[in-house]
């Protein structure tokens, strides 16, 4: 599948072997770190830059290709352009006296540094989030994600919520995605041979062409699910009965270490966040080290 979120890579690195639950929690923790306010823009870029280096290191560990990261960035390109328009070109509301002019047009239209920096900042955050998700999806099989998902839902069992049915449904859906994609491809070819043009045509015609794909696909979906339920039944599946599980998630030493590392990172970045916002003179210190002007 070609999507923003990449595809499991066939390696067996330490990141691949981590417990998916640990990976999901770490992902969320690091994402929060991306969204903490780190004082002024200069600080923000420096600290997020640091975070980026750390993420890059994790990518290296998990053999996530940098190329696929760049490719997935392509998908948010449109969003970035959109943000530029919103933050940079739309006149800034409120008090503009404290802002720094970047370009002032003669008709009174002004682009401020703050607007541009804010766009860059948001894009930077998005990029970081994207790289984190990419690490998760390219080192974790969808099935492992479902097992983790089931585990996170498990407290709901206390209120008699059928979590195992949900995760069974989810795993069957994942199992059948490639099958249905190849089926859709076959149907499309058959209809093309009957003169359907899926590319061209106006709206009405397009809807008609899509029907020629969707209807057969649904019909086959239903017949498949019929047969599937028979097969499951024949092998003794009872949705509400207890089953044992072939796959178990093992929380090992490496997972403890991973959690520990993530905790340190969270602690570190929270402290930085606190310092940049509450300790006077901290900004100046950073500025002195890196020699950047304050905005």
């Amino acid at each position: 599948m070609n999507s923003v979120f990449g595809k499991l890579t066939p390696y067996n690195t330490i990141i691949h072997r981590l417990d998916p639950r640990v990976k999901i929690i770490s992902l969320i923790a690091l994402m929060v770190m991306c969204f903490l306010p780190y004082g002024n823009y200069a600080n923000r870029f420096i600290i997020l830059g640091g975070l980026f280096l750390i993420i890059l290191f994790i990518m290296l560990l998990g053999r996530v290709s940098f190329l696929s990261f760049l490719k997935s960035l392509r998908h948010i390109w449109f969003m970035m352009v959109f943000l530029v328009i919103i933050f940079a070109l739309i006149p800034q509301a409120g008090d503009t006296s404290t802002k720094h002019v970047m370009i002032a047009f003669e008709n009174g239209y002004t682009i401020y540094w703050e607007g541009v920096l804010q766009t860059l900042h948001i894009s930077f955050r998005l990029g970081l989030m994207l790289s984190l998700t990419l690490i998760l999806t390219s080192t974790t099989s969808p099935m492992d994600l479902t097992y983790a998902f089931e585990w996170f839902l498990s407290p709901l069992r206390l209120i008699k919520f059928p979590t195992q049915i949900i995760s069974m449904t989810l795993s069957l859906a994942l199992r059948f995605i490639p099958t249905l994609l190849s089926e859709a491809n076959k149907i499309m070819k058959a209809q093309k041979s009957r003169g359907v043009d899926y590319q061209r045509g106006f709206l009405g015609k397009k809807i008609k062409s899509v029907t020629t794909l969707i209807v057969p696909l649904l019909v086959s979906c239903f017949s498949r699910s019929d047969e599937l339920s028979l097969a499951m039944n024949a092998r003794g599946y009872e949705p509400y009965e207890k089953r044992t599980s072939y796959n178990i998630l093992i929380f090992g030493l490496k997972d403890v270490v991973a959690i520990f590392v993530v905790l340190i990172l969270v602690g570190g970045f929270s402290t930085l966040c606190y310092f940049t916002n509450n300790v006077e003179g901290f900004d100046d210190m950073i500025n002195m080290i890196f020699g950047v002007a304050t905005f």
């Binding site: 099989s141 969808p142 099935m143 795993s171 069957l172 994942l174 199992r175 099958t179 498949r224 047969e227 599937l228 097969a231 499951m232 092998r235 003794g236 599946y237 009872e238 009965e241 089953r243 044992t244 599980s245 072939y246 796959n247």
Partner: peptide, 19 residues
């Protein structure tokens, strides 16, 4: 295709045993 329930070969063989 329609009787392959597990996501991998081992999971599919295990399906009936889990039940």
């Amino acid at each position: 295709d329609n009787q392959f329930i597990g996501s991998t070969v081992e999971n599919d063989i295990a399906f009936g045993l889990e039940n």
